[in-house]
């Protein structure tokens, strides 16, 4: 099966410091991959590089998305092609209504796909239906983006956006951080509803807990800027038990899906 996204020998640095040191990963359509690893291993760098944040410099390697060079695209072009990053720390944007952001995003995507813009009524109907699915009060539409939201509300807002934008490839960056168990379930339910045979996901997490709710097909361990071990979902349980220390001394593992 051909990959939806293929990361080849990727190296990247932040403020002159090399963080990713030759990362390889292939994700096929419909697959859910989890990346786990200790703090500072490069998990967030990977998600930011894939989404196109400018202060992350790619110094080598390539990323192919549906066979095309992803790294050549601006962040908005990546989003329109179907990449979505659910942020670890969604930024607060005072003065910009959630509804403005959602409308701008949905319209940009529809335009890119050659579809007509939704009129105000159709848009509102669609948004309210999606909000219900992540148990968000419609009043959040008219509040400024993430401003004054609790941790759980911010993450639900991320999943709402993802639900509306229907990406081909979603990156969930520590989506479980700062969530209590009820909020975690709501978020995980939202994510699971989006699972389908075409849509792939990369779930980045520090803890095994999230993977009880979003069950991955593959688990990879990122350490020192490389994937040092890959396995099935049972690897997460093993990591929970044994920690990361035993892996950091192992030789570099073959990357991507296990053969």
């Amino acid at each position: 099966m051909s990959s939806l996204i293929s990361i080849r020998n990727l190296t990247a640095s932040v403020e002159g410091k090399e963080i990713l040191k030759g990362l390889n990963l292939d994700i096929g359509p419909g697959e859910i991959h989890a990346i786990m690893g200790p703090n500072g291993s490069g998990k967030s760098t990977l998600s930011n590089v894939l989404a196109g944040r400018e202060n992350y410099q790619v110094t080598g390697g390539e990323v192919l998305f549906e066979g095309r060079d992803l790294l050549a695209l601006a962040p908005e072009e990546r989003a329109r092609e179907g990449i979505f990053l659910a942020f670890q720390y969604p930024v607060e944007i005072p003065g910009v209504s959630n509804v403005y952001l959602l409308k701008a995003a949905v319209n940009a995507l529809r335009k890119h796909r050659g579809l007509p813009e939704l009129d105000a009524m159709d848009f509102l109907t669609l948004v309210k239906q999606k909000m219900k699915s992540v148990e968000m009060n419609p009043e959040f539409l008219h509040r400024s983006v993430n401003e004054g939201f609790s941790g759980g509300e911010k993450k639900r807002n991320e999943i709402l956006q993802m639900t509306l934008l229907e990406p081909k490839f979603a990156i969930l960056d520590e989506t479980d951080s700062g969530l209590d168990i009820d909020a975690l379930k709501i978020v995980a339910d939202g994510v699971n509803r989006l699972r389908n045979p075409e849509r792939s996901m990369l779930v980045i997490t520090h803890y095994q807990r999230l993977l009880d709710y979003i069950v991955p097909d593959y688990v990879h361990v990122l350490s020192g800027g490389r994937i040092v071990k890959s396995g099935g979902k049972e690897l997460a349980l093993e990591l929970e038990e044994r920690g990361y220390g035993w892996l950091e001394t192992q030789p570099r593992a073959a990357a991507g899906r296990p053969a």
């Binding site: 601006a74 908005e76 995003a105 940009a108």
Partner: peptide, 12 residues
């Protein structure tokens, strides 16, 4: 903030 909006497909 700019990156957040762009990451949702909103042009610069």
């Amino acid at each position: 903030m700019l990156f957040y909006l762009r990451s949702r497909g909103v042009g610069l």
